[in-house]
């Protein structure tokens, strides 16, 4: 059964998180490649899982909450590996691993059944739209983690601030791409690139909050704690765009 790959990924993400925390608390005693090895295995198992589900379903596995959650966890893993190799801040890596693990854990409670695609989702835009959105979401998640660390830490704040800024700028660009691909898709499916549907509106609200983050930074010099608070607010809006809209509001975007 191909579902074992998701269990392997869960174990790998868990061990990666444990080893990142070990490295954080017992410096020099744990070689840093162990956690990286585990997170890489987790990413590979999820890649295999996604590929097999794709083949079995005969369509990209990007069409409901469970499938998107797996993609989210997969992307968080990739972003985590990137920032860990590049910036080597263990507290950020450990907490990002924890969030990736939570995403996988949450996915395990959701309905895993493969259902045929609704006519509205049968489009080449599905893959590009979902992937750009989730690249954006996972970058903004990592930006949230490093910003939260800024709020609680006194040391290394300058470095963390620079990292947050870089990841959030990247997430902002991909959120824009996600919104744009969604708009172009909506125009070819329904004849309107913008309908103020709750999902669309909330993605725009989220984008505006990060626009405030970038503008206050560039023109008013808001950095570190002030900027970190904005990153936290932006992340909450992003969570609402992802979950809140689906569970609390109704609209066109009712599948995931």
């Amino acid at each position: 059964m191909y579902s074992m790959y998701i269990n392997i990924a869960f174990a790998a993400y868990f061990l990666a998180m444990v080893f990142y925390f070990m490295e954080l608390f017992f410096r020099n005693k744990f070689p840093p490649f162990l956690a990286q090895l585990f997170i890489s295995s987790g990413i590979i198992s999820l890649t295999v899982y996604i590929a097999m589900r794709w083949r079995i379903a005969g369509r990209p596995p990007l069409s409901n909450m469970f499938e998107s959650m797996v993609i989210f966890a997969w992307m968080i893993g990739l972003v985590l590996l990137f920032i860990d190799l590049r910036y080597k801040i263990k507290i950020v890596s450990s907490l990002t691993a924890l969030l990736g693990l939570l995403a996988l854990g949450y996915a395990s409670f959701l309905d895993k059944e493969i259902t045929p695609l609704l006519p509205a989702l049968k489009s080449n835009w599905l893959t590009i739209h979902v992937l750009t959105c989730f690249i954006g979401y996972s970058a903004l998640t990592a930006g949230f983690v490093s910003s939260v660390v800024i709020l609680f830490k006194k040391k290394e704040v300058g470095k963390l601030d620079a990292i947050s800024h870089k990841i959030i700028a990247f997430g902002f660009l991909f959120l824009a791409l996600g919104i744009i691909t969604g708009a172009v898709w909506a125009n070819s499916a329904w004849g309107s690139y913008w309908s103020w549907d709750p999902k669309e509106t909330w993605s725009l609200i989220t984008w505006f909050i990060y626009a405030i983050y970038l503008h206050t930074r560039f023109t008013k010099g808001w950095k570190e704690k002030k900027a970190a608070w904005l990153a936290v607010i932006g992340f909450l809006a992003m969570l609402f765009t992802y979950f809140g809209v689906n569970y609390l509001l109704s609209g066109l975007h009712s599948y995931g």
């Binding site: 103020w196 709750p198 509106t201 909050i209 626009a211 023109t219 008013k220 509001l249 109704s250």
Partner: peptide
């Protein structure tokens, strides 16, 4: 002013938010 720009981001975001909680 950029101050106006930032205020408008916040205002437009808030007004849009209202429209997602009251069915339109």
């Amino acid at each position: 002013s950029v101050k106006l720009a930032i205020s408008l981001f916040a205002i437009i975001a808030l007004l849009s938010l209202i429209g997602t909680f009251i069915p339109q």
